[in-house]
């Protein structure tokens, strides 16, 4: 018995670590490549650890390319989308949970239904809409586009979360002298914080990593985010600047990793709470 459990534990560990290796390898390789000198990249046999560590590529990406401008665009875009989605989704979810009006459940289902549409289908109509509104080629147009497809999921996540908040809490606040909006801000929102954090993280990552819409809806450097910007400047038909691409990729991944690491605790709490009704 004991032997068998030991072997199965070893097997399980081997399996788990090989999966970790498969997933982590590209990331590790990206970091290693970004600090190798150019000449070392194409050496045969390849070196695993860099023989000489250089930060020259980082310097070049930051100084010689519009990387920082793209970075700024991405930050504005991701933060803006997140704020917009959270404001609409918390109010919307609260309405779907607390207010009673005809067609409420149908509306909630309809919201989810829009989530089923492949995003490719919406690109052309959205682009034409943005042109018609006169906001094509701006960060704002991307923000609106991202909001349209982050909102359904955010609404549902927050809805199931808010269903767990006792109704009496809001009633107590109303009797205690709060207006509906004050009760929402004073009592409901603090209870919903874990749910809001997970929703915000989800939206932020989605907006930060989005590529397709950024490619189609925006074609000026002024409004280009990192995803399309980096591809645009470092990958051409003739050449791929591997070292710079890897350095840029590392710097692109950092904000998400940092945000994720900081909020991870809340994230698991938030997703967990969605499934359990209090």
């Amino acid at each position: 018995m004991r032997n068998r459990s030991l072997t199965s534990r070893i097997l399980l560990n081997v399996l788990a670590w090989s999966i970790v290796f498969v997933i982590a390898f590209p990331l590790v390789w990206m970091i290693l490549t970004s600090v190798k000198p150019q000449f070392e990249l194409f050496r045969i046999p390849p070196t695993i650890l860099p023989q000489e560590v250089t930060f020259e590529h980082y310097h070049r990406v930051l100084v010689e390319t519009p990387f920082l401008k793209y970075f700024r665009n991405s930050v504005i875009l991701a933060v803006g989308t997140t704020v917009l989605v959270i404001v609409i989704a918390t109010l919307g979810a609260h309405s779907l949970v607390r207010f009673s009006y005809p067609g409420r459940e149908r509306l909630a289902q309809l919201v989810l239904f829009t989530y089923l549409l492949p995003s490719v289908v919406l690109i052309i109509p959205l682009y034409l809409l943005m042109v018609w509104l006169g906001i094509a080629n701006t960060l704002f147009s991307l923000m609106l586009a991202y909001t349209t497809f982050a909102l359904p999921f955010a609404l549902w996540l927050l809805r199931s979360f808010m269903q767990g908040i006792p109704q009496d809490l809001e009633a107590a606040a109303l009797v205690d002298g709060a207006s509906r909006m004050e009760a929402f801000v004073d009592v409901i929102l603090p209870q919903a914080v874990p749910g809001i954090i997970s929703t915000a993280l989800f939206t932020f990552i989605l907006a930060w990593n989005e590529y397709l819409y950024a490619l189609v809806l925006v074609n000026t450097d002024e409004a280009r985010p990192l995803t399309t910007g980096v591809m645009n400047m470092l990958i051409t038909a003739f050449n791929i600047e591997w070292s710079l691409l890897m350095a840029a990729s590392v710097m692109m991944s950092l904000p998400v990793i940092i945000v994720f690491a900081l909020l991870q605790k809340h994230l698991t709490r938030g997703f967990g709470a969605g499934g359990v009704k209090g």
């Binding site: 006792p166 809490l169 009633a171 107590a172 009797v175 207006s179 004073d186 009592v187």
Partner: peptide, 28 residues
């Protein structure tokens, strides 16, 4: 509106605000 009726209510579930201290609850 409930706020304008000048009433106070004690709920079966007590409905204390979980994120506030006892003092903040009473002061709300």
């Amino acid at each position: 509106a409930p706020a304008k009726r000048d009433i106070a209510m004690v709920f079966q579930s007590y409905a204390l605000y979980p994120h506030m201290s006892v003092a903040q609850n009473i002061a709300y």
